[in-house]
Simulated scan of single mutants.
Amino acid sequence: MPQPYAALAVWNAEISAKGALPALLLGASRAEALKNFEKTLNLDPVTMSYHVEYGRALLNMNDAKLRARGVQQLQYALTLTPRTYWERDEQRKARELLGQLR
């Protein structure tokens, strides 16, 4: 089940992005976010929202290599065929995030 790993990944990424003090107080870390996103994608590589959330999290990290991986995740999400309204919405979000980088 990839959902719990995705939730942990997003939580760690969101808290870590708020700064060192909130991350320290709440026990969040960028390393945990990355580990849980990778585990999520290993378990379910075709769910679009996982790629979009991973891409968003990577773009929020202050590291050029991670930001480049974030762009790759968002671009990959755009190659997937949306199966539902929600996946079409995820693709819209991916396009918006990529558009903000220009």
Rank of each mutant, 00 (worst) to 15 (best):
K35N: 08
Y85F: 13
A20S: 07
M48V: 14
V46E: 14
S16F: 01
A6R: 08
V52Y: 01
G27P: 08
L101Q: 14
A33G: 12
A28D: 03
R102Q: 15
R56I: 05
Q73R: 14
A17W: 05
E53T: 01
A23I: 08
P22F: 03
A94P: 14
N12A: 11
P22V: 02
I15D: 00
L97W: 07
P2V: 08
A6F: 13
L41F: 03
T84P: 10
A13L: 02
S49P: 00
A94W: 13
L43Y: 08
V10K: 02
D89N: 15
V71T: 12
L34F: 05
K65E: 15
V46N: 14
L24H: 09
T81D: 10
V10L: 03
R92G: 07
R95P: 13
Y76W: 12
R67N: 12
L80F: 07
M1C: 06
R102N: 15
L98P: 08
R56S: 06
P22T: 06
E87H: 08
L21P: 01
G99F: 09
D44I: 02
G99P: 04
L97V: 10
R83V: 06
K93D: 13
M48P: 00
K65Y: 01
A33L: 02
K39D: 01
L74N: 09
L74D: 11
Q72G: 05
E87L: 08
Q3E: 11
R83Y: 08
N62I: 00
Q73A: 14
Q100H: 11
L74E: 05
Q75F: 05
L97C: 13
V46Q: 14
E32H: 04
A17R: 13
L25D: 01
R67P: 02
Y50A: 03
A28P: 13
K65S: 11
Q72M: 03
A9P: 10
A23G: 05
R92M: 06
Y5F: 10
T47G: 00
Q73I: 03
K18W: 05
L66W: 13
L26E: 07
E32Y: 01
K35V: 06
A68T: 06
Y54H: 12
L58H: 08
Y54P: 01
L58C: 10
L43C: 03
M48G: 04
H51R: 14
L24Y: 09
L21D: 10
W11Q: 01
M61R: 00
K39A: 09
E53Y: 02
R95V: 09
Q3L: 13
M1R: 06
G55K: 06
A31T: 12
K39L: 11
A31E: 15
E87T: 10
L66K: 10
M61E: 07
Y50N: 12
P22M: 06
Y85A: 12
Y54D: 02
A94I: 06
